[in-house]
């Protein structure tokens, strides 16, 4: 059975590294894997989504509405934006970070309140935590992506060593220790 994940956030938050890590890890576990990314204009501070799919044989590179087993989100509003893509029994893992989009910045719209609670009220399983603060604890706000991966690892049966191997393969040596710390902070959050 093919499994589906979406990694969503704001352009520049580091979803490409997260998907690279997952792709490496899942391929190493013997799965067929497809990862679909967004490049170009929408990266400039816009809403971005990366799809990761794995299973015995994966065809489509994208995840469609009602299909996602996991939505991993760097930002609360983005988790809410893609809620419709979650399967009824799917899991949201989201940072509670809030970044105002331009319509909110200019006052044309308001940032919705209590989004995690509203998503839960609709039956979604929501694991919301402050990945940004943990990333800063680890040494850099840029490591929020790896904090999220640490948290996500709870929902997989893989041994922690499998995740460590993927971190070592995908992250430059000089950033490795900081990212391992970020992963551990996320995993133990």
């Amino acid at each position: 059975m093919t499994k589906n994940m979406m990694i969503v956030g704001v352009g520049g938050q580091g979803s490409l590294l997260a998907s690279k890590l997952l792709g490496h890890l899942l391929l190493g576990q013997g799965y067929d894997v497809k990862v679909s990314e967004v490049h170009g204009m929408s990266q400039r501070g816009g809403s971005v989504v990366t799809y990761v799919r794995w299973g015995e044989r994966v065809y489509s590179p994208i995840v469609d509405k009602g299909e996602a087993d996991f939505i991993v989100s760097f930002e609360l509003l983005e988790a809410a934006r893609y809620l419709e893509y979650l399967r009824p029994d799917g899991q949201i893992v989201t940072s509670t970070q809030q970044i105002d989009p331009m319509p909110v910045v200019t006052g044309a719209a308001a940032y919705p309140e209590a989004l995690a609670e509203k998503m839960k009220a609709l039956g979604a399983k929501v694991d919301a935590f402050d990945a940004l603060t943990l990333a800063e604890q680890a040494g850099s706000s840029k490591a929020a992506n790896i904090v999220l991966m640490g948290r996500l690892s709870h929902y997989f049966d893989f041994d922690e060593s499998v995740w460590m191997e993927a971190l070592e393969a995908c992250i430059a040596p000089r950033f490795l220790e900081m990212n391992k710390k970020a992963f551990a902070l996320g995993r133990n959050a």
Binding site: V10, G11, M41, S42, Q43, R44, G45, G46, S47, D64, K65, G66, E67, A68, L77, E78, A80, R81, L83, E84, Y85, L86, R87, P88, P101, M102, P103, V104, A108, A109, A110, Y111, P112, L115, K118, M119, L122, G123, A124
Partner: peptide, 20 residues
């Protein structure tokens, strides 16, 4: 058959790309 998900019952403000 087409799977369906649930949507929030309110407008989620758009996040268009912007100048950095």
């Amino acid at each position: 058959s087409v799977p369906a998900g649930v949507k929030l019952d309110e407008v989620v403000p758009g996040r268009p790309p912007v100048m950095c």
